[in-house]
Design a protein around this nucleic acid. Structure first.
Length: 563
RNA sequence: GCGCCCGUAGCUCAAUCGGACAGAGCAUCGGAUUUCUAAUCCGAGGGCUGGAGGUUCGAGUCCUCCCGGGCGCACCA
């Protein structure tokens, strides 16, 4: 069930292994940087070295001998280039491209994704956007590849910070302010707490006591207050998730593992990895090459973030039996996940190798790092609102007769913000720049949406259903090689994006597809051509539209039919 | 101080397992619309890939050192 260009790649590998032996099937086939070198290329240096020959000679020999159906092999110095027959290329791509199952894979694994995970009582800022959109995109990509995906939102709803928050609420809480804008009020309280904590040491005591009460399980004032904050926060988060089209199978904060903490600690004890140090319980990790010991219980008896993650990992393995668990969490928590995995390893839990931290760079402002406490925040909802507002103006200007301008503006604004995040390699820090985020031209989400909308317009104006792509004459699309090759690489881009946990690879492929598509219909009239040609071009447009729609959906970017 | 990540065009970013002449977008300049949406397309200029060595047939990519930035380094998450 090879799709797109995979068909040809398989043929090339088969021919190579027939000529050079089975090992050659794994030879490094790459995509040439320049289109005139064909669709695939084989650098012959290593092969020649292994066989004791000259790479250029080998390339020439292979070019003469290889027989690959519908593929022409040509030597260019030490490179062996493969150029696909244009008609065969179009025929192969039209076979699947554009369908909702294009690029679908056999999958079969259970993949758990832990992402977004904002902290209760704090607003979602642009930093949360990264985890949310990267995690959500990966979840859809893995799902499309046939895996069973479980998405968990591991809310930060536990920990000593909630002791601080409850203590602050008990001192300065304002019922009316909480009703009016819960997250803002809670944030104010949190900031005020930190400001006054140093002047008044009693605050720290109150906070510590409150968290101890919370963790004791007592169903008193502290717990009721905390629960209320959680519910109010979730309601706010839901609004953002709805706008982003993000869905979780489970919204389970750290508190969900509350009743599993004791068991986790007993387990560590039974494995003999627990040590006491300065009144606290730790796991020494020097044998795992980590100098910093892992602290699992504080001297005053409360658990920590990592304790909850240990409990969560065991619980999730038990419940879902995951083959792969991806934690889409910022770079700065690298050590945390190394420790988590090392602790499990010391306990003999070999399954920790299936857990993987998928880190991403942090978002910074030009003025400096974001800091909730110092009030240097950039609210996610504000970013989305501004993008939508700008889109609203542009829609009104460019398409005053749009049937649903408000909906289009929302799609364009949100799409711009989401795509902007996903087009960068996740590892790198990103500097948030309004000018760039709010740009709708060039390599942007709206550019992809626009291309999609143009295709929709052509298909709409055809006034009839798109022809069955298998019924059109692919020879009439021999001039669409760029577009067909770009579409044909979509399945590969999907697989790479999953393998490297890097949605950018899909985003980049969509940009290449859109660029090829725009060039294609710019120079070739679709409607009004003679019947067989119109059919063929309509089929190409349908494949383009469908692939963009699919790719955008996987990334979480809406694809309106009209802009 | 130790560890990890990053330095590519004026700006934001790509570059497949180490492969061909380091590519896009933005910005600048110049073109394209009686025809399916100009949020588009075509073209031009713009580079000692932070610096110095090394490995290799071949280095933006690997190794060493230096410079610059980010993050982390047990009682936060």
């Amino acid at each position: 069930m090879a799709q797109g260009l995979d068909v040809f790649e398989e043929r090339i590998r088969t021919a190579l292994s027939e000529e050079l032996g089975a090992g050659a099937a794994q030879a490094q086939l790459e995509i040439p940087k320049q289109a005139e070198h064909g669709e695939f290329a084989l650098p012959c240096f290593n092969l020649a070295k292994a066989r004791g020959g000259n790479p250029a000679v080998l390339a020439a020999e292979l070019a003469a001998k290889l027989r690959v159906p519908e593929v022409q092999a040509a030597a260019a110095g030490p490179f062996l280039n493969f150029k696909l027959d244009r008609t065969a290329l179009a025929a192969a791509v039209l076979q699947n491209a554009g369908g909702s199952d294009y690029g679908r894979g056999p999958g079969g694994q259970t993949v758990l994704l832990d992402f977004s995970s904002p902290n209760i009582a704090k607003p979602m800022h642009v930093g949360h956007l990264r985890s949310t959109v990267i995690g959500a995109a990966l979840s859809r990509i893995f799902e499309h590849l046939g895996h069973r995906v479980v998405c968990i939102n591991h809310l930060g709803d536990w920990g000593s910070q909630f002791g601080k928050l409850v203590a602050a609420w008990q001192r300065w809480g304002d019922e009316a302010a909480l009703e009016q804008d819960p997250i803002q009020h809670l944030l104010d309280l949190y900031v005020r707490y930190h400001a006054e904590e140093e002047k008044d040491p009693r605050l720290a005591q109150e906070a510590k006591r409150a968290f101890q009460e919370l963790e004791s399980g007592a169903d008193g004032e502290v717990r009721r207050t905390w629960k209320r904050f959680t519910e109010l926060s979730l309601r706010e988060f839901d609004k953002v998730y709805r706008r982003l089209g993000v869905h979780f199978d489970f919204i389970r904060g750290e508190s969900w593992y509350e009743d599993k903490l004791e068991d986790a600690l007993r387990w560590l004890e039974s494995r003999g990895v627990l040590e006491e140090s300065e009144g606290a319980l730790i796991v020494n990790l020097e044998s795992e090459g980590i100098k910093t010991p892992c602290l699992v219980k504080t001297a005053h008896g409360t658990t920590l973030y990592v304790t909850r993650d240990i409990a969560a990992a065991r619980s999730r393995l038990d419940e879902f039996g995951f083959d792969l668990a991806l934690y889409v969490v910022g770079n700065e928590q690298k050590l945390h996940f190394e420790q988590l995995k090392a602790v499990l390893r010391r306990c003999g839990a070999a399954w920790e190798s299936r857990m993987e931290h998928v880190p991403f760079g942090l978002v910074r402002l030009a003025e400096g790092k974001l800091s909730t406490r110092e009030g240097r925040v950039l609210l996610l909802s504000e970013v989305l609102d501004r993008a939508v507002e700008l889109a609203r103006g542009i829609v009104a200007e460019k398409n005053p007769n749009h049937p649903d301008p408000e909906r289009a503006a929302e799609a364009i604004g949100v799409g711009a913000v989401v795509f902007h995040d996903l087009k960068h390699q996740r590892a790198r820090d990103v500097v948030f720049d309004w000018k760039v985020v709010l740009s709708f031209e060039g390599d942007t989400g709206p550019y992809l949406q626009y291309t999609h909308a143009r295709c929709c317009a052509i298909l709409r104006k055809a006034g009839r259903p798109a022809p069955d792509p298998r019924g059109v004459d692919p020879a009439l699309l021999a001039d669409a090689g760029e577009l067909m090759a770009a579409l044909g690489r979509f399945p590969m881009a999907l697989r790479e994006a999953a393998a490297k946990r890097e949605p950018m690879l899909l985003a980049a492929q969509l940009l290449r597809i859109a660029a090829a598509g725009n060039a294609f219909y710019r120079d070739r009239r679709v409607l009004g051509s003679e019947a067989p040609l119109e059919d063929a071009r309509l089929a190409a447009i349908a494949a383009l539209r469908g692939t963009l729609a699919l790719g955008l959906r996987l990334l979480g970017v809406p694809a309106p039919e009209e802009m």
